[in-house]
Amino acid sequence: MRKRQQRASATAGQQQAQQYYLVTPRHLAGGGDLRHVTEYLRASDWRDRSKTGGPIIFESPDRTVRVAYNPHTVPAGWTIRAKATAHQQAWRAVLSPHVPVEIVAGFSDALTTPRSAHAPNVWSPLQDHGWQAGRGHHTTAISPDGSAFVQFHQPASGEVRWWAGARTEQGQRAWDATFTSTTPMHLVLAFTTALADPLPVMRPRGHVPPDQRIRTTSVSVRPDEIAAWQRNRLALARAARVSATTARTGSTAPTIRPHTAGTSRPRR
């Protein structure tokens, strides 16, 4: 009886709710947990080429795209490279370490699914959520609070590229992301969609950047709830993989519904 009580007590302790914060706007939330990106790639059958003590590296099943994270290189952060193929020029994306993982995942998740046949409009999700056109030579969209931007950068000399970023209250660089002009438009659209998404992202206590423009809501979350959300995200990755594989045969892929949990209260 005593052993059962001890096990029950240990389980209760493990499941004790912890304090997190729901953060908006998401582009100011800080980097987050890298596994949000990497475990989705793993569930999508990407090969983990990482070495102990070295950078994180994932390779696509056809070996044409690599996603790497290294905080010690210059530039530090995420580097995503694609080889030239018969249907696509080589391209590269570089995202600094403090790009929120939910925004990185918008881009990297899209690497695992076929592109749409429709012509993408990368500005549409920004316009839909109140981003305004900027002034100047370069085509630019600026977030409603003025702290983030997306720009199609066309210098008089040099490389044409997509450039996005966020800045602190003091105007300092919070993060930057650049994409070569050859980056497929559906991937840039996936990035801008994730960037403009008004839904908050969750960060642990002590991991919210000190910025007066950030709005937070305190939430109490148990470890098993976080684990359930993670499992659900990986299930979505596997379902997308199955759907892509079976589409040619007319089979029906399983439907996965998002799991939600947690009790929130306004932060005082």
Rank of each mutant, 00 (worst) to 15 (best):
K3H: 06
Q14F: 10
Q14Y: 15
Y20G: 01
V23A: 03
V23K: 06
P25N: 09
G30N: 00
G31Q: 00
L34G: 01
R35Q: 04
R35K: 05
H36R: 09
T38H: 08
T38V: 07
Y40I: 06
Y40R: 08
S44L: 08
D45R: 11
K51A: 11
K51R: 15
P55C: 03
I57F: 13
S60K: 03
T64R: 12
V67S: 01
A68H: 05
N70Q: 03
N70K: 03
W78H: 05
W78V: 04
W78Y: 15
K83V: 09
K83L: 14
A84F: 06
A84M: 14
H87F: 15
Q88I: 03
Q89W: 10
Q89S: 11
A90T: 05
R92C: 01
A93L: 02
V94E: 04
S96A: 06
V99G: 05
V104Y: 07
A105P: 04
A105T: 05
S108Q: 08
A110C: 14
T112S: 08
T113R: 09
R115S: 11
R115G: 14
A119P: 02
W123N: 09
P125F: 04
D128E: 12
G130V: 07
G134D: 07
H137W: 15
T140A: 12
A141K: 09
A141Y: 13
I142R: 11
I142T: 14
S143L: 05
P144G: 10
P144W: 11
P144N: 15
G146D: 14
S147L: 08
F149S: 01
F152R: 15
S157V: 08
G158H: 11
E159V: 14
V160L: 09
R161K: 11
G165E: 00
T168M: 04
Q170T: 14
A177S: 09
T178D: 02
F179E: 00
T180M: 01
S181I: 14
T183D: 02
L187C: 09
A190C: 00
F191S: 03
T192M: 02
A194R: 06
P198H: 08
P204K: 10
R205W: 07
H207E: 15
V208G: 01
P209S: 12
D211Y: 03
Q212M: 03
R215I: 12
S220K: 12
V221R: 12
P223C: 08
I226K: 08
A227Q: 10
W229C: 01
R231D: 14
N232Q: 03
N232I: 01
L234R: 03
L234K: 04
A240H: 09
V242S: 11
S243K: 11
S243W: 02
A244K: 08
T245V: 07
T245S: 15
A247T: 14
A247N: 13
T249R: 09
G250M: 12
S251P: 02
R257C: 07
P258E: 05
T260D: 06
A261E: 08
G262N: 06
T263V: 07
R265P: 04
R265F: 10
P266S: 13
R268W: 12
